[in-house]
């Protein structure tokens, strides 16, 4: 067989292999295009168009007009600010609490399995139900929280009437809901840590704190960073808990960006402006996620 024939056969084999690979990927590509790419590009199209209510779809092309309207709307920036406050407080709190609780329940003791199982409950409760239940618990007039705090001489607090407390309420509910998720990840990570390193630390006479600070934490840093990114991706979508508990109030104190976009789209029927907001938030989220992932990789390299 000549070299040319061999090359042809190799080339043919290469193409065949490529075809087989793509044929396996095709259903996924079609599905992703249908459920992800199409809505995304449609939203993009609407964001650059006048939304024609008579056809309930994108009408005339208006360029950057919708983006200008959004950028000049103080409510958009206000909602972004509110979202940022929530993220800055809630995310570190949940990660710290999650890993802290995981450390505490990692020790060998009876009933540990049951406690871990109980931790799953907040995660499986529907967010709207969680918001509603917490609204009842924190109700200043009828709720049990103020009653219990009153027994020890604290309060009463107007959980939904005070702008700062309302934000705290959202963070409390969200933390109650999502900390168990981090506890589960952290517990799994702790169990996966190499035992010999800890045994070596023990032989060297390291204290509990020294073991935690100098052994466990450095080993866990990549996991903590990854957990932060996962939780960040969930947290930026915060919507239902706010809708069910504070409705974005009092005033606009808890009007997070997703709630604002929803209200603009489905209450005021400003679909084009809402689409522009979605695209801006998407770009911001992608940039920040990219930065977090990069930071996460750097930490992995460092530790």
């Amino acid at each position: 067989m000549t070299d040319a024939a061999l090359a042809r056969r190799r080339n043919h084999g290469k193409w065949k292999d490529l075809l087989v690979r793509w044929s396996f990927m095709l259903p996924t590509i079609v599905l992703l295009t249908a459920v992800l790419a199409y809505p995304l590009f449609y939203t993009l199209q609407i964001s650059f168009s006048y939304f024609d209510m008579s056809i309930f779809g994108a009408g005339e092309w208006v360029g950057w007009e919708n983006y200008e309207t959004v950028i000049n709307d103080y409510r958009f920036w206000e909602s972004l600010r509110v979202t940022l406050i929530y993220l800055i407080i809630a995310l570190p709190l949940q990660v710290a609490l999650g890993f802290g609780i995981a450390f505490l329940i990692n020790a060998e003791w009876g009933g540990r399995g049951l406690l871990r199982a109980l931790f799953i409950i907040p995660m499986v409760v529907a967010p709207v139900v969680a918001g509603g239940v917490w609204r009842m618990i924190l109700d200043p007039l009828w709720g049990t929280m103020n009653f219990l705090l009153g027994l020890v001489g604290i309060g009463p607090f107007d959980w939904f009437g005070d702008p700062q407390l309302a934000m705290a309420t959202i963070i409390i509910i969200d933390t109650w809901r999502w900390t168990p998720f981090i506890v589960l990840i952290a517990t799994a990570a702790l169990l996966a840590l190499p035992r010999d390193v800890f045994e070596a630390a023990k032989i060297d006479g390291a204290s509990w704190w020294a073991t935690l600070w100098s052994v466990a934490l450095p080993l866990l840093v990549p996991i903590i960073a990854a957990t932060f990114v996962i939780r960040w991706l969930g947290a930026v979508k915060l919507f239902d808990i706010v809708l069910a508990s504070t409705f974005g109030g009092p005033g606009k104190a808890t009007s997070v960006i997703n709630l604002f976009i929803y209200e603009e789209a489905f209450r005021s029927f400003h679909f084009a402006e809402s689409a522009a907001m979605v695209m801006i938030v998407l770009v911001l989220t992608m940039i920040l996620t990219g930065l977090f992932l990069r930071g996460s990789r750097k930490l992995e390299e460092l530790y």
Partner: peptide
Amino acid sequence: DATQQILADEIARALA
């Protein structure tokens, strides 16, 4: 509906 939403937003801010 859009006008009512604006009133809802602003009146809520004033009440708060």
